[in-house]
Design a protein around this nucleic acid. Structure first.
Lengths: 333, 333
DNA sequence: TTGTACGCGTTATCAT
DNA sequence: ATGATAACGCGTACAA
């Protein structure tokens, strides 16, 4: 059975409200009775009921974390960052996966559980639920992506710049026929990267042929299939750039299977700098995304919005990407 | 402002309790008033307050998930499995990381939040908190490891068998001088695997030299350093087996760096079959651990314990490992 | 079939 | 410095 504040009151010979004050060190309470209460609480093994507390305080100290595809290790560090900061600031996190496009059900659950705010780890542009929340003034922070048309608080990376730098690097290495593996229409990150890619080509006076762009859906499989199509073209592209490392590795898989060599026959680039990309033999040139930091700053931002509501200029934190040059692009340091 | 059951009652011209019954379809309620209430609720945008509900029901429909090192992608799929099942069964999950050895603080938070049960994704043998919980009859399910001395509900893999099969495979390929990279003392999984390793050697009449065993702490770095030491021995071991793929990849990194070839100069084996292990060029021979399934079954088991308490024979679900033979062991299919 | 009254465990307000 | 009281939002036994 649960030990409640009442039983402590009885044991210590005081009223429940005094116990509440003593344990929460609010208001005045004589240090002597304080002791008695503390002792009784310890003796009985008292554990405050956060539910009851949240109910009366109208604040749960809980934040909802929506992650699309939890099984995708890309999100591991994001979750870690969020968790660490949240814990430090006294918040617990309720984790849900965002498989559905609108996120209707997930958000509903979170709101019913009275979360104080929501962090969304990969909202699609089709997500109207987030839109509504924002309109109601409910604290929401987006990670990695924005919702076009709505100014929402978010922590993102400068995807366009990232893509520009990466593409530019390949161009400088002499590549003029670059295949591009696009992510997903509904993700602003994908569009931003593509924009950066095009810009780099344009600045170098290279015309982009439409058939050099394939969609990969952000998955390993998608990268594999996209590479299949791109490498069937003639003349073959001399380099492939994928919208994330996952797809780049999928492409790599295909390239290896048909016996081509990276980077001799096909150079390869990606985005994110997931752990795989660095290991011997893979050594993928990519753009590092500070995932842990993104999660951590997202949590900081959300908590700030929760605790200082109203004075809400929208904050959009833009992290700078970092080009990581490895063997797959053919560059010899 | 929150829309409560009272406001619906007022809008529909009934009492709060009637609304409660209508929305929860308990007890009798005329279908006509039912309609009125439903309509009012929808019109006002009613959202039940799970906190209040949990308080009175004395059940939160929430489970705590403790994961050591969330940023370790090994746990991604476990989390995914737990999340999926929990959601389907109407439970939310509160995620905490288990950095501290005893897990004292994490568990305290979870209990205060009134979780109905706890899933622990990697309890160390030093964890006395879990021990206490179990003693109190609180629903707890362990994943991947057991606590020696206490019979707890858990979902594990047959680590000993896994190690036996893997080692045996190497022995059959002709290796007699095997280096072993041990995980972590506090993890029963590590000890079990080591036991399987030794057994395989013994059955083959190979004596185990102590210096052929190094500790790797389950991390990439640890694997790297262990390989450093093991490969400095002379004669050099012809094969290395690591307690998990992470360490195996660390070892691989070192092997590559000093210019040795896998498997020609050194064969390599691991455990877990994480995604990396399968990619071209790595192709690590390993033993697959069904992580998603482990999480999913763990959640099923815990919910079962929560909903049918008392009739508690301890259930220990043992999943069978699966040997995955790839290039790194030198076997030519 | 519906309403009344109370309790879940806690905190906050206002007396004392 | 402490205690009585009400309230947070909901569920339920009991009465009507």
């Amino acid at each position: 059975m649960q030990v409640t504040i009442k039983e402590i009151a009885a044991a210590a010979g005081v009223s429940p409200s005094t116990v509440s004050r003593a344990l929460g060190n609010k208001g005045y309470v004589k240090s002597e009775t304080m002791e008695r209460i503390r002792a009784a609480a310890a003796a009985l093994g008292y554990r405050p009921n956060a539910l009851a507390r949240s109910l009366v305080r109208r604040k749960s100290n809980t934040i909802g974390l929506i992650i699309p595809e939890i099984e995708n290790p890309f999100y591991s560090e994001i979750i870690s960052g969020v968790e660490r900061v949240a814990t430090k600031r006294g918040y617990s996190i309720i984790l849900v996966s965002g498989y559905s496009e609108t996120g209707e059900a997930e958000v509903k659950t979170l709101l019913e559980r009275q979360v104080d705010g929501i962090i969304h780890g990969g909202a699609y542009t089709t997500n109207t639920t987030i839109f509504r929340l924002k309109a109601e003034g409910f604290p929401v922070v987006l990670l990695g992506r924005r919702l076009p048309g709505v100014e929402t608080d978010c922590v993102i990376v400068n995807d366009r710049l990232a893509a520009y730098q990466l593409t530019n690097h390949f161009i400088k290495l002499g590549h003029r026929r670059l295949g591009y593996i696009f992510g997903k229409d509904e993700s602003t990150g994908s569009s931003e990267k593509f924009a950066g890619f095009r810009q780099a080509l344009a600045d170098a006076g290279i015309e982009l042929e439409p058939q050099l762009v394939e969609k990969g859906n952000l998955q390993f499989e998608g990268g594999y299939r996209a590479a299949q199509k791109l490498l069937a073209l003639s003349p073959r592209p001399t380099a492939l750039i994928a919208g994330n490392d996952f797809m780049a590795l999928g492409a790599r898989q295909y390239v290896c299977e048909i016996g081509l060599r990276i980077p001799a026959d096909v150079a390869l680039g990606g985005f994110d700098d997931i752990l795989w990309s660095s290991i011997q033999g893979v050594e993928l040139t990519t753009v590092a995304v500070p995932r842990y930091k993104m999660g951590a700053m997202g949590a900081e931002l959300l908590i700030k919005k929760i605790e200082k509501p109203g004075q809400g200029e929208v904050e959009q934190i833009v992290l700078e990407p970092k080009l990581i040059i490895r063997r797959s692009c053919g560059y010899q340091g």
